[in-house]
Every structure is written in structure tokens, then in C-alpha cells.
């Protein structure tokens, strides 16, 4: 038996209006996708051909991925950097978050204040000495250097700490009486409980690293090490007015994120909502 659903006419009208708003919002993406499938001569045709009349998708994407500036290489670089940064950052942040919330040691409180204080520093304010330091340490123009830059996140530590605090101390004490050390408690009890928070943070960190343009721009020189964002910019400069190619590159740069986002949609949105409401 089908359940009768009551359709509220007022709600339908606002849904329709909002739907048009959202389409207007998405138009640049739609335009990007449709242009990437066209031939160059049709790009600026007016009225806009949303569905291409003459298709050139295969050759556009082929040029982007396997042409003179092969995107598969930059993709691999980006995946490497984003995955490593995310992994290291999650490990470092959750260790620190546990230490700052569940190990009761006197130095903890003021060490945490120091860590929080660094969050006030705008990243660009420490850029110049970072650059000089990297030159001296030989980390300049390496992926390891780039990965390390994103691996120590105050935000991640703070966020995960909030969740560790939510775990009742009786839990921890009971485990201690049973003879478990902090390492075991962290690994076997605390971390599994906060797994959703870790997932949220990991997805956000991946997205931020993937999209980062400034650090690769400053800390990488060698073309073969470029991440997708740098490659995108270089590709645009070189291909000047080949808009179909540029749009195919843009689609390629955004697509993996979109997949990560849609898969982890609930985590991302909940995480941002939570962070915002808590402040």
C-alpha cells in the first residue's frame, strides 16, 4: 500500500524558486563541462550551446591527459601529496589530541595554549622564513617538504580534542585498572570511538591539500613535481586561448574532489556545521 504524501503547495513553490537559484549557482560548472566537450569554434557561440552540437570531447581530454603536459603525471603527484599529507596529519593530530585531552599531565595545559596560539598566525606571515629554512634544509622543491608543510594542523588537533573530551573518563580509568597503558587505550578504545570525527577531518584535509595552490607555487620549481593546481595554471598560460582544452583541464582538476565530496558528503557537511556552531 502506498503511503499518501501531502504536498504542501507553498513548499513546492519555494522549492522551484530555489531550484532556479541553485541552477544559476551551478551555471559556471555546467558551462565548464559543456565547453570541455566542444570544438574550439563553438566556445563563444551565442546563444550559448549548453549541449554541444559538434562534439570533440575525446580529443580534448586526450590532449589534456596525454599531450605535451600530461595530466596523469600531475595527478599522480597530487594524489601522492594529498594522501601522504592526510595520513600524517591525521596520525599527528589524533595523537596530540589524545595527549591534550586524556593524559592528565601538568605541562599539557600550557603546551596546548601554545599550539592554539599558533592558529592565530596567518600562514603567509611565516612564509618567508619557511622558504629560507627549506632552502637550507634541502626540503625546497621536494614533495616531502610540501607534505610536511600541511602535516601539523592545529585545527585538526583542536577538532579531534573536542571529540576525545567527550569520551567519559571512567572508560579510560576502567581500562587502566585492567592494566592497559595509554597507547593501548588510545589505539583500542579512544580512536575507534571518535572514528567519524577522524573521517571528517581526513576528508577536509584531503580537499584542502588537493586544492592548495600557494604552497606548491612557492615550494616547488621542477615541472615533474608539479601538483594538479600548478599544472592547471601552467596549462592555462601555455594554451592561452584554447578554451576547450583549458576547460577539460579544469573539469579534470575538480572531478576527483567532487567524488571525494559526494562519497563523504555527510561527514563534510556535519563536520563543518559542528565546527561552526561550536565556534
Amino acid at each position: 500500500m502506498q503511503r499518501q504524501r501531502k504536498w504542501d503547495p507553498k513548499k513546492i513553490i519555494s522549492t522551484i524558486i530555489l531550484f532556479f537559484c541553485s541552477i544559476a549557482f551551478l551555471l559556471p560548472f555546467i558551462w565548464m563541462l559543456s565547453t570541455s566537450l566542444k570544438i574550439e569554434a563553438d566556445v563563444f557561440k551565442y546563444p550559448i550551446e549548453w549541449i554541444p552540437s559538434r562534439w570533440n570531447a575525446v580529443s580534448n581530454y586526450q590532449e589534456v591527459w596525454f599531450g605535451d603536459h600530461p595530466f596523469y603525471l600531475y595527478y599522480w603527484n597530487s594524489i601522492k601529496v594529498a594522501v601522504c599529507t592526510t595520513l600524517i596529519s591525521v596520525v599527528v593530530s589524533s595523537l596530540a589530541a589524545y595527549g591534550f585531552s586524556k593524559v592528565r599531565f601538568p605541562a599539557g595545559a600550557w603546551l596546548f595554549m601554545i599550539v592554539l596560539a599558533t592558529y592565530m598566525v596567518p600562514p603567509q606571515a611565516s612564509l618567508v622564513p619557511q622558504f629560507i629554512l627549506y632552502r637550507y634544509l634541502g626540503l625546497f622543491d621536494t614533495h616531502i617538504g610540501l607534505i610536511l608543510l600541511g602535516s601539523f594542523s592545529v585545527l585538526g588537533t583542536f577538532m579531534l580534542r573536542q571529540f576525545f573530551i567527550g569520551i567519559h573518563n571512567d572508560f579510560i580509568d576502567a581500562a587502566k585498572i585492567d592494566g592497559a597503558g595509554h597507547w593501548r587505550i588510545f589505539w583500542r578504545i579512544a580512536l575507534p570511538i571518535v572514528r567519524p570525527a577522524v573521517a571528517t577531518y581526513a576528508i577536509l584535509r584531503f580537499i584542502w591539500t588537493w586544492n592548495d595552490y600557494q604552497n606548491p607555487l612557492i615550494f616547488l620549481r621542477t615541472d615533474a613535481l608539479y601538483t594538479i593546481q600548478l599544472a592547471m595554471q601552467k596549462f592555462t598560460t601555455i594554451n592561452g586561448s584554447f578554451y576547450t582544452l583549458i576547460m577539460a583541464a579544469a573539469v579534470s582538476a575538480i572531478l576527483p574532489l567532487l567524488i571525494v565530496f559526494i562519497l563523504g558528503q555527510k561527514h563534510v557537511i556535519d563536520g563543518i556545521a559542528l565546527g561552526g556552531v561550536k565556534g
Binding site: L95, A96, G99, G108, V115, S126, L133, L148, G181, H182
Partner: peptide, 19 residues
């Protein structure tokens, strides 16, 4: 133990931000 847990973070932040 506490110091061990937070030391990777502290070390990283000292080198990459504080210094």
C-alpha cells in the same frame, strides 16, 4: 607519556610555524 603523545605535533609546529 603525555609528552610523547603531543611531541610530534609540538616538534612540527615549532619548526614550521613558531620558529
Amino acid at each position: 607519556v603525555g609528552l610523547l603523545f603531543v611531541s610530534p605535533m609540538l616538534l612540527g609546529i615549532s619548526v614550521i610555524v613558531l620558529f
